Amino acid sequence: MTEKHRLHDANFPSAREEASPRETEYPPAYRLAFNDQDFLLREELRGLRFHLELQKPEMTLKEHGVDATIAIFGSARYLSPDQAKAASAAAEASGDPAVIRRAKRDERNSHYYDQARRLGQLVTEHSMNCAKPEQIYVVTGGGPGIMEAANRGAQDAGGPSIGLNIVLPHEQAPNPYISPEFCFRFHYFGIRKMHFMLRAKAVVVFPGGFGTFDELFEALTLIQTGKSRRVPVLLVGHEFWGKAINLEFLRDEGVISPEDVNMIKVVDNADSAWQEIIDFYDLSPGRAPSC
């Protein structure tokens, strides 16, 4: 039988086709460079690894048509109300005053978990009723606490969400509410933070520690310097942020411009944060297919 030739077959075999598992039978030097992990992890190839960490999520998100996100930041340490209540009961049983104080604090702060979950739900409900170009996806750092809550809210609404996890000395697993196809892991903080801002149409920041502040001030610096276009930067919780950040003091000391004070807005709940985003972009809160 005459061999059939297809017009659009590739002229060259793919790298995948030539990455033979039999390479392990030969000395390491014989392995194809792109199939040699020891080679790829050399110090001299750090720049290549930067590029790979940029490209893997970028290509995946583009393939799925993800163009717009809401970046939600906040503490990995905050518990859900159920977890906090159980921990408080256990603390009371211990009789240790210091343990009881910490448990009561965690129970008081657990409402932020609920608000982050609510925000994830609001954003995703909007997107589930929009045509593809208008869809907005929740993106978090992929870990526990506020991150888990926002991803969980998206799942509550029946939609996908994104998690950008990071390798840490104390191993951090991705929370179970991230969509599997959007569950990414990074070695480099800088590339991870770049991905947070590449598609962010708003940044919503719940109370948190050093990591949360790093993410917040990364966004503010990019906007202030014109490296990023202006997007809403919303801080949730007057009680926390009124003590944690004082932009008026920085303005009065002359280290930021007077208009920089207006780069952030403090709100007290998820509904207010979502309304700020709706107003900024003139989004329709209705359920028309095209929004």
Rank of each mutant, 00 (worst) to 15 (best):
225 T>R: 13
258 P>V: 08
105 R>G: 01
101 R>S: 04
73 F>T: 02
225 T>E: 12
289 P>Y: 00
152 R>D: 12
179 S>W: 09
46 R>D: 05
173 A>F: 14
268 D>R: 07
178 I>D: 09
54 L>K: 08
248 E>N: 10
59 M>V: 13
225 T>D: 13
200 A>C: 05
27 P>Q: 13
270 A>R: 07
203 V>I: 14
186 F>W: 12
1 M>Y: 12
265 K>S: 03
225 T>C: 11
261 V>N: 12
246 N>T: 12
187 H>S: 14
186 F>L: 13
264 I>K: 04
202 A>V: 07
155 Q>F: 04
41 L>S: 09
181 E>N: 10
228 S>H: 15
287 R>C: 01
27 P>F: 09
282 D>E: 15
230 R>F: 04
287 R>Y: 08
277 I>G: 03
175 N>G: 08
70 I>P: 00
115 Q>L: 00
181 E>S: 10
235 L>E: 02
258 P>H: 09
164 L>R: 12
213 F>R: 11
254 G>F: 05
30 Y>T: 14
82 D>W: 01
39 F>T: 13
232 P>N: 10
225 T>Y: 13
190 G>F: 13
14 S>E: 07
270 A>W: 03
149 A>N: 03
209 G>K: 06
145 G>E: 03
130 C>L: 01
85 K>M: 00
64 H>W: 06
285 P>K: 14
274 W>K: 02
257 S>W: 02
157 A>F: 12
287 R>W: 05
16 R>I: 11
169 P>R: 14
121 Q>K: 10
269 N>Y: 00
143 G>A: 07
221 T>Y: 07
175 N>W: 07
235 L>T: 08
33 A>L: 11
260 D>N: 11
219 A>Y: 06
167 V>P: 02
97 P>I: 11
42 R>V: 04
100 I>C: 05
263 M>D: 09
35 N>C: 12
118 R>Y: 01
264 I>G: 00
190 G>S: 13
95 G>N: 09
22 R>F: 13
237 G>F: 10
166 I>E: 13
201 K>A: 06
42 R>N: 08
161 S>C: 08
271 D>E: 10
12 F>K: 11
6 R>E: 14
218 E>A: 00
67 D>T: 05
216 L>H: 06
137 Y>A: 02
245 I>K: 08
36 D>R: 14
223 I>G: 04
120 G>P: 02
231 V>L: 07
41 L>I: 06
177 Y>S: 12
103 A>E: 04
197 M>A: 11
33 A>D: 11
31 R>M: 11
65 G>H: 00
199 R>E: 01
149 A>C: 03
47 G>R: 05
5 H>K: 15
255 V>N: 01
141 G>D: 01
84 A>I: 07
154 A>Q: 09
273 A>N: 04
102 R>N: 12
285 P>D: 11
128 M>W: 01
